[in-house]
Every structure is written in structure tokens, then in C-alpha cells.
């Protein structure tokens, strides 16, 4: 174990420079982020992830955000275990009818101010699952969405760009 730890100290970090915040995301957020919230939260957001019917592909890439290459926590962004600790809900999936109620309860359990980020093609509009008897067809049909990060699944870099845009907006002094 010592050898592995020492190597971690002596070798350079794998962490890559931050990508620029996504322009489209900045635009989408400009309308939804409120001034009061910006002052209160600063550059630190707690994220609660909710799978509302995803195929688990998005979850794999959300997990990757925490690895040494992307290192999400360096930006003050961290995943938390309860919606009651969260500022941001990161929601995946086309919202199955079976998850609708659980998603609403999670949303209601998250204190204000809060933001909702819909991750992936099916969270945007149901994607390939749209039209099924078992899905609602997009997160925005169930809870208000502040930011969409599209892709099937979006890459960790795409997600990082979107989340950095969210940080920019929440911390920008008006």
C-alpha cells in the first residue's frame, strides 16, 4: 500500500485542466438563476443524483466525474446522500411512471434555493423511450428544469462544462 501511496505523491496528478463552461448552458441558465441564491451559495454546490428510469449509462459517466481525471470536488461540487443536503438535483432517465412519485418527493425534500439539471437524451424528452406506456417523457414534465445536458450518455467533460456553467451563474455577482 505504501508504494501505491508514494507513487501518488511522486507522480504528477492525472487531473486535467477544467474545460470552459458550456456557452449554451450559460444561456439556458441565465434565465433561471436568481440573484439571492448566488450570494448565499457562492462557489459550492451539493448535488443529489436521482435515477428516474435511466438505463444506468448516465450513472456510469456521473461516477466518472469523481475519478482522478475529472475530479469534480476541486470545483466545490460534491455528491451528497440526501436531497435534504442538496442544492442541485441531477436527474437521469425518461422519468418512468413508477419513479414519478419518488422523484416528486425527492424534489420536495430538497430545500430552496435549488436547481435541477436533467442529464442525458431521455431526461430531455424521453429520448428513445418516449411514447411508452411506462414513461412520462422528460424531467421537465414532472419538475422544473434549469439546465439540460444532452448526450447518450453525455461524456464526463460535457457534464463538467454544464456544471461549471451552473457554478458561474450561481456565483456571478449581479
Amino acid at each position: 500500500m505504501r508504494k501505491t501511496l508514494l507513487e501518488g505523491l511522486t507522480h504528477g496528478p492525472l487531473t486535467e485542466p477544467a474545460p470552459a463552461p458550456d456557452e449554451a448552458a450559460l444561456k439556458e441558465l441565465a434565465e433561471s438563476v436568481e440573484r439571492a441564491a448566488r450570494a448565499r451559495l457562492g462557489r459550492s454546490l451539493s448535488i443529489r443524483q436521482v435515477d428516474a428510469g435511466s438505463c444506468n449509462g448516465c450513472e456510469l459517466e456521473i461516477h466518472a466525474l469523481a475519478n482522478a481525471f475529472y475530479d469534480l470536488e476541486r470545483f466545490g461540487l460534491r455528491f451528497v446522500a440526501s436531497p435534504r443536503h442538496a442544492d442541485v438535483l441531477m436527474i437521469t432517465g425518461p422519468v418512468t411512471k413508477n419513479m414519478r412519485e419518488a422523484l416528486l418527493r425527492t424534489y420536495n425534500a430538497t430545500p430552496d434555493p435549488k436547481w435541477v439539471v436533467a442529464i442525458g437524451a431521455c431526461a430531455a424528452d424521453g429520448g428513445i423511450f418516449a411514447g411508452s406506456y411506462a414513461v412520462e417523457g422528460g424531467v421537465k414534465d414532472v419538475v422544473p428544469v434549469d439546465l439540460h445536458i444532452r448526450g447518450c450518455p453525455p461524456s464526463p467533460t460535457d457534464m463538467l462544462k454544464g456544471l461549471l456553467a451552473l457554478l458561474e451563474q450561481t456565483s456571478r455577482k449581479a
Binding site: S54, G93, N98, F129, G131, S132
Partner: peptide
Amino acid sequence: LGYVHKGIEGLMQGASLDR
């Protein structure tokens, strides 16, 4: 279980091979 049931087998019925 069943919370992430998307009805994939239902969507398959009548679908093209590609889809």
C-alpha cells in the same frame, strides 16, 4: 423492483430492426 421499467419490450413491438 420495477421502478425503472420503461416498457422496452412494448416499444420493440413493431419497431424496425435498427430502432
